[in-house]
Design a protein around this nucleic acid. Structure first.
Lengths: 341, 341
DNA sequence: TTGTATGCGTTATCAA
DNA sequence: TTGATAACGCATACAA
């Protein structure tokens, strides 16, 4: 594990470390011949500056931390994909952390990434998280961070989310236009901001078409697969004619549960979900979907973060960016219409 | 971004940094009262050792690098999930890198992770990669690494893969037992080890049932979605009665292409693919699948890596671990049989 | 039991 | 134009 250091070069060339350092950094105040010599030798020996030493000196790491509830989730893995691509081009590394939907792990993870001197943090909250003091703490310590997807009103920092309201509105409206009126809404934990926004979009669409809101048609589910089936039973007891689900897992769980009960789609019920493109591609033909712009959310979030980092300012603007969703309507096997919202 | 350092504690308590350091590390040779004082103060000030300083000193980072072709891929994100869970419990961080299937990026990434002083590397080769000198280089420099999934015979290091031969054999045999005899095999680039293994399993099953191998029934595809459809056309011209695809993307692409051409499944053709559980859950009912044990591969790989790191030895044993696959056979809507191989 | 000095790799400051 | 020295935060060999 022996790397070439500046010291090695200095010794070999009978120079001081400072001269070598300057030569490598292309400083002006240096003899051209010396410079050439150093660069040549460094090249030949495959010299690479030690990023750890640099981090210690500069008190930064050129790395950003990403905290997500789960990597093995299409939405987050696509978001990370977007994040990594941009960060890489800007010379930053990405360190991934998973909270596994656990509040405690999220707290530990935030602290660890701070200790690791990440230059900034991208975070999507664990479903368990309601107390946000760990975030206030790092904010107070001056670590820039951007929240994405699972955000909270209680923290004043830039946020990037899908336009959940518009997406839910479009989905619900689509179902209504198909003639459905008892639209069940199966969604994720109620305290998440995205849940509220989607619910609001759902309600707004109902209202537009003068359909009364029936809270018996709304069910909140956790993220475990086994929770879904009983909720579908509950909802079926309310004799809905459509399902609008708030995540891909719910959509798929719902799909499976309906099949199991021999409920035909789309004759008896229509089904529409919030999913992302990868999943949307796999869906059974009759299912339309609101596509979450996962990758774009990641990209926009990391861009805002890098801006904060490089301008070294808290946050020029701490608003929420809403990335448009797309509604993909499938009549039979083919997507026949893709419309932006 | 002001963190408490040992120096701060020393100053506040009128001690030397070495005393504080020793107290924090629970050294014996120290006054119990002093120790208590230090620990208490450190606790109160939320002291956290600076991992960067530690890395510089100890020339290690308690981080492992993971290089995958793509994060936004169910197989790899599940593998990373398995890796992260274990690494976390053992006190290691995971730094993710994507090669984006590019040889050049893989090389750069390997060098960067070495420069970052990762304690070890888990790597799955980019499809473009055939020259392995970058790996030989880090091997020679003493950086331990484990290859998983996409490995190469040419490197002598521990490897963890799915039992591709057995999986392909079981898949093919299943199709044969369904009465199929012209089984098309659509697979990934031919130079990847997993491709060869799967092809071998396919051929072995044919041989067992005295079905002649027809190379016109085998097609190699890259990882782009648009490549698939023409290949399916090619294969259909050979009038196959079944498809065995070597990855989930191919399976899904193939499925879509067949639907588009109104080829009915499973009447006209049977379809079986190599996928992982998450994807398997989404599949259209008639499609059986060989499940890749993604998470387990990640877990086993990281365990072997940590073993190498902590024993500080090159590699006690550089063999290949084959993780069993499972064949999930779906007759109609339900998986009716799950058998281990 | 505690303190002093040194080094990990780098750069910035000051001196030559 | 170049060199010596200190500093980043920590651990440790050695001195007291």
């Amino acid at each position: 594990m022996d790397s070439v250091t500046i010291k090695d070069i200095a010794r070999a060339l009978n120079l001081s470390t400072s001269t070598v350092s300057r030569a490598l950094r292309g400083s002006y105040e240096i003899n051209l011949e010396t410079k050439r010599l150093v660069l040549e030798y460094a090249e030949r020996m495959h010299y690479r500056p030690n990023p750890i030493a640099l981090s210690l000196k500069e008190n930064r790491s050129r790395a950003i931390g990403v905290i997500v509830p789960q990597i093995a989730n299409n939405f987050f893995s696509q978001a990370i994909n977007g994040i990594e691509a941009i960060a890489y081009n800007r010379g930053y590394h990405v360190i991934i952390f998973q909270s596994h939907e656990s509040y405690e792990r999220e707290v530990v993870t935030v602290q660890q990434s701070f200790a690791r001197k990440v230059d900034g943090l991208l975070i999507s909250l664990a479903s368990e998280t309601s107390d946000l003091s760990h975030l206030r703490e790092i904010q107070q310590k001056g670590l820039p961070f951007v929240m994405f997807d699972r955000t909270s009103e209680e923290i004043d920092t830039p946020k990037v989310v899908a336009d959940n309201f518009a997406g839910a509105f479009a989905a619900t409206e689509h179902l209504i236009q198909q003639g459905r009126r008892r639209i069940a809404h199966m969604t994720i934990p109620s305290w998440l901001s995205i849940t509220q926004e989607r619910l609001a979009g759902y309600r707004a669409a109902l209202e537009k078409y003068d359909i009364p809101f029936d809270e018996n048609l709304v069910r909140y589910s956790g993220f475990e697969q086994y929770e879904i089936s009983p909720l579908v039973d509950d909802l079926l007891a309310q004799s809905p004619d459509a399902f609008f689900t708030a995540s891909d897992r719910l959509a798929l769980g719902c799909l499976a549960a309906l099949r199991k009960r021999n409920v035909s789609i789309p004759e008896e019920v229509s089904l529409i979900g919030f999913t992302n493109l990868t999943v949307a591609d796999l869906l059974s033909p009759s299912m339309s979907t609101v596509v979450q712009p996962a990758q774009e959310i990641g990209q926009v979030a990391v861009e805002r973060l890098l801006e904060m980092i490089e301008r070294k300012q808290k946050a020029s603007w701490t608003g929420t960016v809403k990335i448009p969703t797309r509604l993909i309507v499938r009549e039979s096997t083919q997507p026949v219409l893709i419309k932006g919202i």
